[in-house]
Amino acid sequence: MTDTQGYLDQRAGLAGRTAVVIGGGGGIGAGITLALAGAGVDVALCDIDQEQMAVTVATARDMGRKVYSDRIDATDPDALDRFYDDVARAFDHLDIVVNVVGGTYRTNFMDLDRTGIARDIQRNYGYVVQSVQRAVPLIRLGGRGGSIINFTTIEAHRGAATFAVYAGAKAATTNFTRSMAVELGKEGIRLNCIAPDTTPSKGNESAMPPEIAAGYANVLPESIGKAMAMYIPAGGPPPVEALANAVLFLASDLATFVSGMTMHVDGGTMAAAGFLDWPHGDGFVPVALSGTVPYMFPVEQK
């Protein structure tokens, strides 16, 4: 370890703390779990995917961390309560909570039934409220405050057609987080959001309708990469490590006075607000110009 790394570790103060990661078994959640474990944090995690979670748990234990895990559907209120009951027995307090679980699928709002609407609200907002309510008493036991990090999305900050209920639920999570940051501020309990955009996750893949997913099978990866580079100013979607790094920052003492905020880990898409880097010489504009339009709409030109 270099002197610089030792200095940053000391300032961050993560070693020896305890965390809960809801949805910490696979994908983005696994990256977060292992980043926390690598920083010296003991972890309790739950996930619906037992196989992936087992790999994550084994890796975290190999790092020398105490780990508790349980296979549950975090959107089931009874299951989430049981998980927190078990966490309270496994650890004498909590310092960090990360609520990663979420997801949706692309469809017109008027095609949704009430079951689908309720499901979107529960898995993108409802369980977060329950998780925070169960976690706060365990954080209070530590007597030194703590950090709760809720995953929201860029869609909570723009009109997301065909993702309306998802976007509304994530917006609710965002403002709930702000409100609780105010309510718990004097106790040193900080709440913040991370708002990714397109990320390499099973959730984003499953959100696509089958016909679109099937169409992607015939598209070269290089072409998909070029499309992402048009859309995301940084040139591509954030890797899992970028999201895990944001969690480490918000969980640590480096962010002691950061609360009620939303960190956009999106490569600049929120800042771009619709400005795409169109090909064929059009450059950064909201709508394709003469260079790209003939390729998009191949009709006879003047």
Rank of each mutant, 00 (worst) to 15 (best):
N218Q: 15
P239E: 14
Y7G: 04
V55M: 09
D86V: 04
D85V: 03
A35Y: 04
E183S: 12
V129S: 08
S201N: 05
A273V: 00
T173H: 08
A234M: 13
V87P: 09
G40R: 10
S206T: 13
R106N: 08
I139C: 10
D47K: 09
V182T: 01
R106V: 10
D42Y: 12
V100W: 02
G23N: 11
P237K: 05
T292E: 04
D282S: 06
D113F: 06
I121P: 10
E300P: 01
T18K: 15
T104P: 01
M53H: 11
A167C: 07
A160F: 01
G143D: 02
G6V: 05
V43A: 13
G27W: 06
F249V: 06
A60R: 07
G102K: 07
R106P: 00
I189P: 10
M261K: 06
G102H: 04
T107G: 01
D282Q: 07
L289E: 14
P294S: 07
S131T: 13
G281R: 10
V219L: 11
G143R: 01
A60N: 05
F297P: 00
R61K: 15
K66A: 14
A164E: 11
Y231C: 00
Y295A: 12
A227V: 11
D42S: 15
V285N: 07
R106I: 11
V182I: 11
P279H: 10
L34E: 08
V67I: 15
E205I: 09
V165M: 06
G260C: 03
R140M: 09
A156D: 03
